[in-house]
Design a protein around this nucleic acid. Structure first.
Length: 804
DNA sequence: CCGATACGCATTTTT
DNA sequence: TGCGTATCGG
């Protein structure tokens, strides 16, 4: 530890070592923020005598939390301690607390988490029931307003009394929002469900209404750390205050210049006013950037200086000076794609760069299309982030809904979804009757489904029988879930509900992809149970599984797809990442900055977004814009973004003018070592192909499903290039090929194992056996994995092979 | 209850 | 343009 501390700069060292009071760490882009945070936690454990369960560390993404856990495990060389830390996203940590304290907030232990789609669907129904005009009351907008209210810690009762919100609703010509909010809350309660924002709201209410419970957690969490503090909303900020106001052992880390989520309720003021709330707080500024060249850092500085509201800081780099930022004007969006491809090819030649060294960043997801086309035609492998997440796909949500119903039959949205899937003759009319009947009686849909005659549900005998069958089916799963784990119930659901029968009927491409997704879902459950068993963690019920997946997003599980690919994503998704070369595309007025940004405040957020984009780049940063592009099918003419003018021109290389021709010429002059040249030849031929294909005919979709990830499987330049691989989310899990196989592991591997041997684990990689303990089924081994540090595995379940 | 067609509407989205 | 939903007809 002491040795490691040597490698910190004075500011980093001070930030790590100051543990006696509140501290605010302003961490410029690329300034080693995560390193400081992880070392601070290690320092608290190693030097300050904190126990792991006394430390609460809050992040915004699962990815960030997992990364930090891994890094701390490495520093301390101990995964056991790391596992006991309270480290996770705001939502996952507070959800854990809410489950434990569910009685105090009037929920049952297995309450459901509604995702955004569930919330909107419920709102849609409420709006319909109230007879409101659905042109004015759009579920998304209403949900947004309710979300704002919750972020401001206003319950429905308080909302209808709140003058400011009422006025805003009148101005927006939606005076009924208060009423909708009331009904929405009631329906959530009877469904034993909360939405994402409720997790924060109820946590706040739990602590404010139950001083004893608050004290319990204040006692438990002796030190609190918060990452990405600039992205906290009022509710999160208040909860942190509830937990730290007495002891004030709190450290928040963030960068006001990277606050880009205000549209989701994040409040930049939280970081600006931290010192007013915590009176004796210390401020640390991490200003040395270790990521980017001097040019990139200084260019970004010159840009962000145009913003008014910010904490004064001076980010600098001692890396090489670096090249100027190249600005390219393209004639069209299509040509912009070509320019990027050409640059990638050139840098691969010149610097031997890998595909994975490149990122194409854009303001909106819709822009990905052109680049996807261009990359595919040139035969370059790529992956696109964004779009629908795995758990939002229809077939996946269907299965999950059955599981949700099993854990919480009162879950209205889950019930609505599956009561007639697969089709059992309970149509929309019947469903609406059930909903209305339930609402009138103030009970859940499940209650009505259970006793239709008691609630006078107006249905025929035949329908009543069908409803009874459904009720019996779910009851059966509830019974099963008392003894079976998540994976086992999942398999039963898929089989016994008729979902398998439904999607294995025929081999349409859609069905095939649905089959894959179901298989992957079951594999995911399998992995979930297996990992927890290996780690000797007993929480493998459906409820545990659901808690985890309801808070998971796509970017979190990077699917272990580490193959060499160009990355494409929105700038928002790129926050926290870095790439040797970054292309920021679509630098046009109205696109970036978005035309939606009207107020100066919004314009500053757009500028911060641009700042985030530039600072992702380590060595090369390219900006480009197109003079014309297709927008909603219409050709539109654009002009260069004002943001390019916001960068000091001494950091820009604009003399290229129309970029294409110039960069092409440079291509030809490059000398290549033989080996690299060999690899280049194919690529150049692809490139030639692409030029030939570059006619403006309509390029009809070969597959109805658009590939989100593409690896060329081509050896000859003559062969067809279009061979889309499966979705990136489908290629991840490596375990079972078949849904119906069960876990089995060869017992002789267990026999071969002994201290000092090397093993290769299916997921954790290669490691050395450190210790073996226990007998019979409970034999545990401590393995020191090369990449992950020490882990304890229950050999009964671990999947590994002994390699020496 | 499903399929076909028409319409309307499109930022960013850690959880 | 192109997707997701709304509505009508079989």
């Amino acid at each position: 530890m002491a040795f490691i501390m040597e490698s910190f700069n004075p500011a980093q060292k001070a930030a790590v070592e100051y543990c006696d009071g509140p501290s605010l760490v302003i961490a410029g882009a690329g300034s080693g923020k995560t390193r400081v945070l992880t070392h601070k936690i290690s320092y608290l454990l190693d030097e300050k005598g904190y126990l792991p369960h006394e430390i609460l560390a809050l992040t915004f993404t699962n990815k960030a939390a997992n990364e930090m856990k891994e890094r701390i495990a490495k520093i301390l060389d101990d995964v056991i301690v790391t596992r006991r830390l309270w480290m996770g996203t705001f939502h996952s940590i507070f959800l854990r607390i809410l489950r434990a304290e569910h009685e105090s907030i009037g929920f049952s232990a297995n309450f459901t988490i509604y995702d955004t789609a569930d919330s909107k669907s419920l709102l849609k129904d409420i709006i319909k029931q109230m007879g409101l005009e659905d042109k004015t009351y759009k579920p998304a907008a209403v949900l947004g307003q309710i979300s704002n209210a919750k972020n401001s810690l206003l319950t429905a009762d308080e909302y209808v009394k709140n003058g400011a919100f009422k006025e805003a609703d009148m101005r927006a010509k939606m005076p009924a929002i208060g009423d909708i909010y009331m009904r929405y809350s009631k329906r959530c309660s009877t469904s034993d469900a909360m939405d994402f924002d409720d997790i924060l709201l109820y946590t706040y209410l739990l602590f404010s209404k139950n001083e004893d419970i608050r004290r319990k957690y204040v006692e438990r969490f002796k030190y609190v750390l918060v990452d990405e503090y600039q992205d906290t909303n009022f509710a999160q900020h208040q909860i942190v205050w509830q937990l730290t106001k007495e002891r004030q052992h709190v450290c928040v880390v963030g960068d006001d210049a990277q606050s880009i989520y205000s549209f989701r309720g994040a409040n930049i003021d939280n970081i600006l006013t931290f010192k007013d709330l915590y009176k004796d707080s210390k401020l640390f500024k991490l200003e040395q950037n270790y990521r980017s060249t001097q040019v990139i850092v200084e260019a970004a500085n010159s840009l962000i200086r145009k913003n008014r509201a910010q904490i004064q800081k001076d980010v600098f780099s001692e890396n090489e000076r670096g090249e100027l930022i190249k600005v390219t004007e393209a004639y069209s969006d299509i040509e912009e794609g070509q320019v990027v491809i050409r640059q990638i090819g050139q840098l691969r030649r010149k610097e031997g760069a890998s595909y994975s060294d490149f990122a194409i960043l854009y303001r909106t997801n819709a822009q990905s299309r052109v680049f996807e086309e261009a990359l595919r035609k040139s035969g370059m492998p790529y992956k696109i982030y964004g779009g629908l997440s795995f758990y939002q796909r229809k077939e996946v949500k269907d299965v999950i809904s059955y599981l949700r119903l099993t854990m919480n039959p009162n879950d209205e949205e889950a019930l609505k979804r599956v009561i007639n899937y697969p089709a059992r003759g309970i149509g929309s009319t019947t469903i609406q009757k059930i909903i209305d009947c339930a609402t009138e009686n103030g009970v859940s849909l499940w209650s009505v489904v259970g006793e239709p005659e008691r609630y006078n549900l107006p249905v025929t005998k035949a329908t009543a029988t069908k409803i009874g069958m459904f009720h019996a089916l779910i009851s059966h799963f509830i019974e099963l879930s008392k003894t079976a784990n998540a994976e086992e119930v999942g398999r039963s659901v898929v089989q016994e509900c008729g979902i398998l029968a439904d999607i294995y009927q025929d081999k349409t491409p859609e069905n095939l992809s649905r089959q894959e997704n179901i298989t992957e879902l079951i594999n995911g459950m399998h992995d979930f149970c297996e990992t927890r068993l290996e780690e000797d963690n007993q929480n493998i019920t459906i409820s545990d599984y659901l808690s985890e997946v309801s808070l998971i997003s796509d970017l979190d599980s990077d699917n272990g797809d580490n193959t060499d690919k160009v990355t494409m994503m929105t700038i928002h998704s790129a926050k926290g990442l870095e790439f040797p070369t970054v292309f920021i595309v679509g630098m046009e007025e109205g696109l970036f900055p978005s035309q939606m940004a009207r107020t100066p405040r919004e314009m500053e957020e757009e500028r911060r977004l641009f700042y985030v984009a530039i600072t992702r780049a380590e060595r090369h940063c390219f900006l480009s814009y197109a003079k014309s592009r297709y927008h909603y099918g219409k050709m539109e003419f654009g002009t260069c973004s004002r943001f390019i003018r916001d960068i000091d021109s001494k950091f820009l290389d604009e003399k290229s003018g129309v970029g294409t021709a110039r960069y092409l010429r440079e291509d030809d002059e490059v000398e290549l070592p033989w080996a690299k040249r060999r690899a280049k030849i194919d690529e150049l031929e692809y490139f030639m192909n692409r030029v030939e294909e570059q006619s403006y005919t309509s390029n009809s979709k070969i597959n109805s499903q658009k590939p989100r990830s593409f690896t060329p499987h081509v050896t000859s330049s003559k062969s067809k290039l279009v061979q889309p691989s499966s979705s990136i989310r489908n290629v991840s899990k490596v375990t079972n090929e078949n849904v119906s196989t069960t876990v089995s592991k060869s017992p002789n591997e267990v026999g071969k194992i002994s201290v000092g041997k090397h093993i290769e684990h299916q997921r954790f990689g290669i490691g050395v056996v450190m210790a073996i303990e226990g007998t019979g089924d409970n034999v545990k081994a401590t393995i020191n994995f090369n990449n992950l540090g020490k882990k304890q595995l229950l050999l009964k379940f671990a999947r590994f092979t002994v390699i020496d």
